[in-house]
Computed example of a mutant assay.
Amino acid sequence: MSTDTPGWKRMAFKNNKVWVETGPAGDLLVQDGKVRIKYQLDQPHEYRVHKESLRPLDRPGAAPATSTVKSPAKKKPVPAKNFAGNGTEVAAAMAEKDAIQVFTDGAASGNPGPAGIGVLLIYGNSQKTISRYIGHATNNIAELKAIEAALLEIKNKKLPVRLFTDSAYSLGALTLGWKAQKNVELIAGIQKLMRTFSDLKIFKVKGHAGMAENETADRLATEAIQKLAE
């Protein structure tokens, strides 16, 4: 019995079964060498991967028929974790239906210069965006301010939160113990805010790599600066 759905095809990706977007003829829909995948068809998020990383389910070594992607079990409050560079972890986090998905970005024209932040929050079928000018700042400050604004926007801190940023600096300063020479007070304030959440994880994603939500956050940050110039 076929497991395919019009427009999507069942394949294996890193030992997980995923849905892969297909064209009218049933072939993979490739753009810039990558294809869209979803872990569940009804999830609001998508992820782009290289077509070479996919394989048919009936090929040896493919994911078994019983393979499933499960949301992590609820745990006691823990510090944010870094899964930078692990595409499978990022994709799995984006597939967690019970979590608030947060995408942040910051931009500065001149670095330092006029700066803005962009935030996209998704919970179920609800979305909220933030596009805000923050004055004269560096790009690193804008990235941190975007994360701060996103966390302040979330009122129910008992819900799991998955935050995605393309800023290695922010991830390192907030979760990896990097010794910051600047922005010390801002970083400490955000870390204090992070500790008020029961289940918060921060992920590093690659910027300008086709992730729709990250591109939206980038656009919101840039628009905040552009509106000032108009």
Rank of each mutant, 00 (worst) to 15 (best):
M211R: 09
V69W: 05
D105Y: 03
K182L: 09
G110F: 05
P56S: 00
A142D: 06
A188Q: 15
A92D: 14
N125Q: 15
I141F: 12
E148I: 09
L57P: 01
W8F: 03
I100H: 00
T175A: 10
L152P: 04
T104A: 01
R55L: 12
Q101W: 06
A212W: 13
G118S: 04
W19E: 01
N139D: 06
K227G: 07
N140D: 02
E215A: 02
V102G: 07
V18P: 01
S131I: 08
R195E: 14
E143D: 10
N15K: 12
T175W: 04
K179G: 03
E143N: 02
K128A: 13
D32T: 09
P44S: 09
G23S: 12
D4L: 06
N16C: 14
R36Q: 15
A92I: 14
P6M: 06
G135M: 05
E213K: 03
L200E: 07
D27E: 15
K38E: 02
T104R: 00
T22F: 06
R132P: 09
V20K: 03
A108S: 11
P60Y: 07
K182E: 10
A93I: 00
K51R: 10
R219M: 13
P77E: 05
K192V: 10
T88M: 10
M94F: 12
A146M: 02
S71V: 11
E46M: 11
H208G: 00
G124V: 03
W178T: 08
Q101P: 04
K157I: 12
I117D: 03
I141T: 14
